[in-house]
């Protein structure tokens, strides 16, 4: 395949993947609106009651993580499970479309949705809650938040590889909401009992949130390499588990549709 054609396939696959989820109100509205509504409530209305800007700044980082987590899990996890169920994936596998283009498209769609959420959150934080950060912090925070697409998409891939169709949405919700809470995306982690804090240490969203908080000097003080190491290790583990799931599902899906 020529590089030009490969590029075109990647680009169009991503374009149509994005257009597809954009036109899906069941996906687009919650993933875009939830982080913003949460921020409006906890960051703007509740958070700006005192003089301190600590709360609006803190939750800007954590709802940013929440905003990136949603599209990655729903778009990737539930979307993939659905397309395996309907057979779209099977059909595309018979075409010359490289498998990479399909994964790339899903990551890109999650990235673009994440970027929209991040931009909207930033604007709301800056203009409704009075948050001011240094220029490098705005850029670094956006960069760290969007980089979260990678581990979260890997987690989505794992869910998509093991769960089927409708049950995938349920599984994603079972992962999404508890992980968001236990990772301190809604309330700072140090407000939880010890046991829950220990659980957080195992969660990718916790480590990602800590990296985001590091940018604005509000993290819990663990070193950056620790967070990075956990995220890299978990991403690799997710990919491995996903690969197992696909191998197992191969024969399973054929038996069902034979």
């Amino acid at each position: 395949m020529t590089p030009g054609r490969r590029f075109r396939i990647y680009l169009l696959e991503a374009r149509f993947q994005f257009v597809e989820v954009l036109r899906e109100p069941m996906f687009a509205i919650p993933t875009l609106a939830f982080p913003l509504i949460f921020y409006l409530f906890f960051g703007v209305i509740m958070g700006t009651r005192g003089v301190s800007l600590a709360v609006p700044t803190y939750v800007l980082a954590t709802y940013g993580v929440f905003g990136v987590l949603g599209p990655a899990l729903f778009g990737f996890g539930a979307g993939l499970a659905n397309e395996r169920d309907t057979g779209v994936l099977l059909l595309k596998q018979t075409t010359p479309m490289p498998a990479g283009a399909y994964l790339f498209a899903k990551v890109m769609a999650a990235l673009i949705f994440g970027a929209v959420v991040v931009a909207a959150l930033f604007l709301m934080a800056a203009h409704a809650a009075g948050v001011a950060l240094y220029r490098w912090q705005w850029f670094a925070l956006a960069g760290v938040l969007l980089a979260g697409v990678i581990p979260f998409c890997a987690l989505g891939l794992t869910i998509g590889a093991w769960a089927r169709g409708r049950s995938a949405v349920a599984v994603v919700n079972l992962v999404f909401l508890p992980m968001a809470m236990l990772s301190g995306l809604w309330l700072p982690i140090y407000m939880f009992p010890d046991v829950m804090q220990d659980i957080a240490l195992a969660l990718p969203a916790y480590h990602h949130a800590q990296l985001a908080l590091k940018v604005i000097a509000m993290d819990a003080g663990q070193p950056v390499p620790t967070h990075l190491a956990v995220l890299v290790a978990e991403t690799l583990a997710f990919l491995a588990v996903a690969a197992l799931g696909f191998r197992r599902a191969d024969s399973f899906s054929m038996r069902r549709s034979r």
Partner: peptide, 25 residues
């Protein structure tokens, strides 16, 4: 392809523009 790239470029510019115009202390 052209249109996709144009939109992507616009998106990147708008996103960067938002980041570049957010208030600083």
């Amino acid at each position: 392809v052209g249109r996709s790239l144009t939109w992507l470029a616009i998106g990147v510019v708008v996103f960067t523009g938002v980041l570049a115009t957010l208030p600083v202390p």
